[in-house]
Design a protein around this nucleic acid. Structure first.
Lengths: 255, 255
DNA sequence: ATGTCTCGAATTGTATGCAGTTTGCAATCA
DNA sequence: TGATTGCAAACTGCATACAATTCGAGACAT
């Protein structure tokens, strides 16, 4: 076999399976609860069953699939509740990161420049939001991601960074370009961008002043924008055709 | 203890490998950085390489082992810094759990009885701490674990419970019987028990009064006792013979 | 003596065969 | 008609063989 045509370098089959399967899951290619039969899935991903198995174990720890008691793995269903809680957890962790950044007295915030750059870029983009809505959204998503990355780096905690990474990978836990840009047309979503920007400004200010408790609270609240976004999307019935991942969401209790 | 999730009847080879290897790692059977060669390890764990591999993937996500870029897995080294950060994260998450417990207005805290029972049991045990030190320690460890479990259950968040479980499984992130009981003879450690108990009392009180912010802060601080414990152990040079896991800890930066 | 290159042994990553279960279907019975 | 049981197909979990890499030892050149 070894038809590694698609991979640029020599990527292990396991990584290939992991990446491709994760992408499929996040794209919502399966409905919640679907059994992931190994043989057809292996064929689809162009790997054999062994590396696929390894990928499934990894994805279980990422919370995207679930071990079926008697039979392999199934696509994990995502309850709204789960998403909201995950967002809240992300807020806690990023809040902690912001606090740690302040508490590290050793560095003189050399990294604040990066944060300011992102904030400025968003500020400029937002001025043209009515004429170039898509562009403003794209800039926001891009620079927002950088903002968060830099802030987490400032915390100087490898451990925390890892955890945030894990959480952020969960569906809808953090703004993803595919999801957000589906909402470009909604006025309410535009307003969310402005709110996010204003929060960024406040966060940078709090960091400058070394206001640890404040910046922690601000980051927590900032994370909750993801919740607001999701609620808007569900309210407005964003067509699931453009965001098939939405189909994974269930309202009620666990089924 | 969802970490011990396994079917009692037919334990899969994978679960067996996972449990036994985790135990070995947490016992400090390997020094940090040791390469985990598959063939001898498989022999030692009485499983074949395939399930062992799956267990290693799982353990990587738990943070106990690390993938070597070119060659299998190595035992992850634990920096003091990592431990302290992990403890802090646990405090954040448990604080969130306590807050959620308060915020859930639907239940009338039916579970507070469990918490009170644990608190009372510890209270009684502490009265005999000078005559039956070991017994008091054991009771504390046992009931403390229950206390935390019940509190987390009160939060009613499966997602959060999972994350806390993950974090708690990390070495030294939470009081473990093997570690704590090695400190029975230290007066400072006895004092830590009393502090922990006093905090439990305050936590229950805050829950009763539905003081969300207070209980969150209390839980955070409560987690930091684990840090204090570790520092005492390192200060007093608790013999690594009795807690070989201590050998995994390194002080400096990543090596 | 030090550094580099080559070759061999050992180890990992992958594929696949096999056995034990589970599931779905169908036939039988109430 | 509905439920139950038995059977066959399919699938998972595991072990192992095979191939591709990597590491180390030793020789050779500088």
């Amino acid at each position: 076999m070894a038809l590694a045509a698609a991979s640029p370098k020599t990527m292990s089959q396991q990584s290939a399976a992991l990446l491709r399967l994760r992408e499929l899951l996040l794209k919502g290619a399966f409905t919640a609860g679907t059994r992931l039969a190994e043989i057809p899935l292996a064929k689809r991903l162009q790997v054999s069953r062994t590396p696929l198995r390894l990928a499934l174990v990894a994805l279980e720890h990422e919370g995207l699939v679930q071990e079926h008691p008697t039979r392999g793995y199934v696509v994990r269903q995502i309850l709204r509740k789960d998403i909201f809680e995950t967002i809240e957890i992300r807020g806690m962790l990023e809040g902690m990161a912001a606090r740690l950044a302040v508490e590290r007295a050793d560095r003189e915030f050399l990294g604040l420049g990066n944060l300011r750059r992102s904030v400025n870029a968003i500020e400029i983009a937002l001025k043209t939001i009515d004429t170039d809505t898509a562009g403003a959204f794209n800039t926001y998503i891009e620079q927002n991601q950088l903002f968060h990355q830099h802030l987490i780096a400032l915390a100087g905690s490898q451990t925390l960074a890892r955890e945030i990474d894990r959480i952020t990978g969960r569906p809808f836990a953090a703004p993803s370009s595919g999801f957000i840009s589906a909402q470009v047309d909604l006025p309410r979503s535009r307003h969310v961008l402005r709110m996010g920007h204003d929060q960024h400004v406040a966060i940078v200010e709090a960091l400058e002043r070394r206001e640890a408790a404040r910046v922690e609270t601000l980051m927590r609240e900032h994370a909750r924008l993801a919740r607001l976004n999701l609620e808007i999307a569900l309210d407005e019935n964003v067509r699931t055709a453009s965001v098939p991942m939405l189909r994974l969401i269930r309202n009620g209790e666990a089924a």
